[in-house]
Computed example of a mutant assay.
Amino acid sequence: MTDRDDIERCLRTFKAGYGHFIRQTPLWQLPGKALGVECGEVWLKLEHLQTGGSFKARGMLNRLLSNPIPASGVIVASGGNAGIATAAAARELGVRCEVFVPEVSPPAKRAKLAALGAEVVVTGAAYADALKACLARQQETGALLTHAYDQPEVLAGAGTMAAEIEQQGGVPDSVLVSVGGGGLIGGVAGWFEQRSRVVALEPELAPTLYKAREAGEPVDVAVSGIAADSLGARRIGSLSWSVTQAHVRDALLLTDESIRAAQLWLWKELKLAVEPAAALPLAALQSGRYRPRADEKVCLIICGANLDPASLN
C-alpha cells in the first residue's frame, strides 16, 4: 500500500527540482457559516489551480520521473484530466505523449490535450473502452504506460497534496474526497491514515467504491451522469481498494442534482469555476449526506477545473 514514506519521498523530489511545475495550491480556511454549513471550519484545498487544472499532475509527473521513458514516449487512457496531466508532464520532460479518451470526454478537455502537444485518440463510449484500446496500443509501441489511478507512483503523487494540507493548516478532523478510480482518495488516505476521517464521495450514477464494498471486492459497475468524464471508471483501482479498506470508513453517494447545485454555488458565491467532480465535497455538506460536528474542521478537496465555462451559465 502507498504510505507516508512513499509520499514523503515524492514530495522531496518535487521540491528538489519541480517546484515550478507542481504548485503548492492554496488552502482557504473559512468559518462553516460562510458556506451555509453548521460546523467549526471548512477548508477548501484549491487543487483545481494545479498545473493542468487538477490534482492529477502530481501523480503523472511522479510516474514519469520514477521510470525510464522509451523513445516511443508515454501513453495513457483518460476521461480527460489524467491525460492532460500526463501531456503536461511529458512536455515538461520533452517526451512524446499519446492519449486515448472516450467519446464522453468534453471537447474542452480534448482541445487542451491538443494544445499541450499530445496525440489524441478518441475511442469507445466510456473510459474502460479507451483503456482497452490504450493497452493494445502500448503493446505495439512499448511506450511507458501511465494509468489514470492504479499505479503506486500515481497514488504517492496524489498524497503530496494531503501532505501540503497538513503543512498549511494541520490535520483536519475530516477530509471529503471525490472518488472515481480512487487515485486521489488512495493518496489522501495513505497520508492521513487514521489521523483524520477520510470520507469517500461518489455520484449515485458512478458508484465504484460503494458497489465494491457491497460485493466485498472490486466489481464492474455501470457509470453515467454529470461527472462521468472525471469519475467514470467502471471499477475501483486495486491499490485504492486496499488503502480505503484500511483507512476509509465512509463511502457516500450523491445525486447529480446536488452535485450540480454545489458546482453552481461555488461559481456564484466564491467565483470558483470547477468541474462537477470537484463539487462533490461541498454537495455532501450542503445536501446533508455528511453531517459534521458543530466544532469540526472539514477539508474539501476541490480537485479539478477542466470544464467549459459556458456550462456555468
Rank of each mutant, 00 (worst) to 15 (best):
P281K: 06
Q29G: 07
L282F: 02
E119H: 11
W265C: 14
A310V: 10
D256E: 01
G180Y: 11
A114R: 15
S224G: 14
A163F: 02
N67V: 12
A125T: 12
E98T: 11
L155P: 04
N81A: 04
K109A: 01
N81C: 02
I302Y: 09
Q245N: 12
G186H: 02
D295N: 10
L35K: 12
L65C: 05
A222C: 10
A34M: 11
R110S: 11
A262Q: 09
N67L: 13
N306V: 00
A115F: 04
Q263K: 15
P276R: 09
Y290A: 14
N81K: 03
H247Q: 07
D129V: 10
K15Q: 15
W241S: 00
A133C: 15
L155T: 08
L253H: 08
V99H: 09
R195I: 10
G170V: 09
S240K: 04
S311N: 08
R4D: 07
V104R: 12
C303Y: 02
Q167N: 15
Q286S: 06
A261C: 06
P26D: 05
I165G: 09
G187P: 02
R63F: 09
A294V: 15
G187Y: 01
K271H: 05
L44M: 06
A212K: 03
A206F: 07
I259W: 03
L27R: 09
Y210R: 14
G94P: 08
E103A: 15
A261D: 00
E153T: 01
D256P: 00
A189M: 04
G304M: 02
A222V: 04
T208M: 02
V171T: 02
G288W: 04
Q50F: 02
Q167A: 12
V122S: 00
S174P: 01
C10Y: 14
L266A: 08
L135I: 09
P106K: 11
K56D: 06
A128T: 13
R58Q: 11
V198D: 01
I165Q: 05
R289N: 13
R91K: 08
L35S: 12
W43P: 08
C303M: 05
K45H: 06
P309N: 03
L239V: 07
L201C: 13
S240Y: 06
L184C: 03
Q139F: 12
L253S: 08
R91N: 12
P107C: 02
V223A: 05
P276C: 15
T2D: 03
A284P: 08
A16Y: 09
A136G: 13
V198T: 01
D295H: 12
F192C: 08
K268F: 13
L116V: 02
L116H: 08
N67H: 13
L116W: 01
P292E: 10
L44P: 00
G83C: 02
L253I: 09
N67Q: 14
S54H: 03
S54E: 14
N62H: 07
G32L: 14
C134T: 09
A200I: 07
G36N: 04
L231W: 05
H48N: 13
A130C: 00
I7L: 07
I236Y: 06
